[in-house]
């Protein structure tokens, strides 16, 4: 418990210091890394903790991005309000998916969410009068300044705040129920857990943060296309980030996202081959270390059998 707080504190300090060291281009990379960190941790919460392997996270981020962008462009909504609406739109869609996939298990849920992602992408491409499709939608920026520093701190703030909320949820009784449902849905039900409610809850919370990440991204990057935002390979990269970090750890998801994003930029000379490397890393890690790379290392140092992650573990 104490170790966790110290670790998080150090991570935040490093995060705050980043703009002092990195300038324009690498600061941009850092912002994108944090954006993926938020998406990856929202996926980890849904898949790793509640056992619902959804492939719709990028699409939900895209829904947040387009909702927010279109509201600012067409309705002249204030930026902050549009950001919230973007996140809420993703939440509502996430709620609907959560309800629809209730009865589906494993591969069916994966199928459904892949199909859903493609449906969103196809629709956004097809409705080019509204979204400008693959031509790209020009989105007003969040700040008038050209400096990236304010964006960086905004994204860092969003990420830290979101992680705090997710961490609190996962440490509470709800986190315990999520994991119980993941392990054995029927056993959880006969132990008094309202399975339906908590499965949907996990979907809703995760979708909100995916939507929030997407809306921020739209007003940072300035140009949106459905394909770059939510093509299936994007989702693959996101999953690679979470899996490398360790599928059952928010900190792992953040670390995985930062690692992969920076490696990706660092290895630019390899062009597309760097994605081949990530793909290979993904399957090899799954094959040989199902709990990821980063989390097991952390656990070895923490040297405890079970982490005090939930209410149940604190000393009685």
């Amino acid at each position: 418990m104490k170790k966790n707080v110290i670790g998080a504190g150090i991570a935040i300090l490093i995060g705050v210091a980043v703009p002092l060291v990195f300038r324009s281009y690498w600061l941009h990379v850092a912002i994108i890394a944090l954006y993926y960190a938020l998406l990856a941790s929202s996926w980890t919460m849904l898949a790793g903790f509640s056992g619902q392997f959804s492939f719709a996270t990028m699409a939900l981020g895209g829904i947040g991005a387009y909702t927010s962008a279109l509201l600012v462009i067409n309705v002249q909504l204030p930026m902050w309000l549009a950001l919230i609406c973007g996140a809420l739109a993703a939440t509502v869609v996430g709620l609907l998916i959560g309800v629809l996939v209730l009865r589906m298990r494993g591969p069916y849920l994966a199928l459904f969410t892949i199909a859903f992602s493609e449906l969103v992408r196809i629709t956004l491409n097809a409705e080019y009068q509204l979204t400008r499709g693959d031509m790209g939608l020009t989105v007003p920026h969040l700040y008038t300044t050209v400096s990236k520093t304010p964006y960086y701190y905004t994204m860092l703030g969003l990420l830290v705040g979101s992680l705090l909320v997710m961490w609190t949820v996962l440490r509470s009784r709800y986190g315990l129920f999520f994991r119980a449902i993941r392990e054995q849905e029927e056993a959880a039900a006969v132990m008094g857990v309202n399975v339906v409610r908590y499965k949907i809850m996990a979907f809703v919370i995760s979708s909100f943060f995916a939507g929030l990440a997407g809306s921020f991204f739209a007003h940072y990057i300035g140009t949106l296309t459905p394909n770059s935002m939510m093509e299936i390979p994007r989702m693959g990269l996101l999953i690679a980030m979470s899996v490398i970090g360790g599928i059952e750890s928010l900190a792992g998801a953040v670390a995985g996202a930062v690692l992969v994003e920076f490696l990706q930029e660092y290895l630019r000379a390899l062009e597309m081959w760097r994605f081949v490397i990530f793909g290979l890393a993904l399957v090899l890690i799954l094959r040989f270390s199902q709990n990821g790379l980063i989390y097991p290392i952390y656990q070895r140092f923490a040297a405890r059998r079970v982490e005090p992650r939930t209410v149940a573990d604190a000393e009685a």
């Binding site: 392997f53 492939f55 299936i232 690679a240 597309m272 994605f275 081949v276 290979l280 399957v283 799954l286």
Partner: peptide, 30 residues
């Protein structure tokens, strides 16, 4: 040899698919 079989089967085949896509991008061009 694998725990959580359902999860592994989904992620590993999906991961292989992503690997092939990227491999094809690199080898054959976009």
């Amino acid at each position: 040899a694998v725990e959580r079989k359902d999860e592994y089967a989904i992620l590993i085949t999906f991961g292989l698919g992503i690997f092939f896509q990227n491999l094809a991008m690199s080898l054959f061009g976009p």
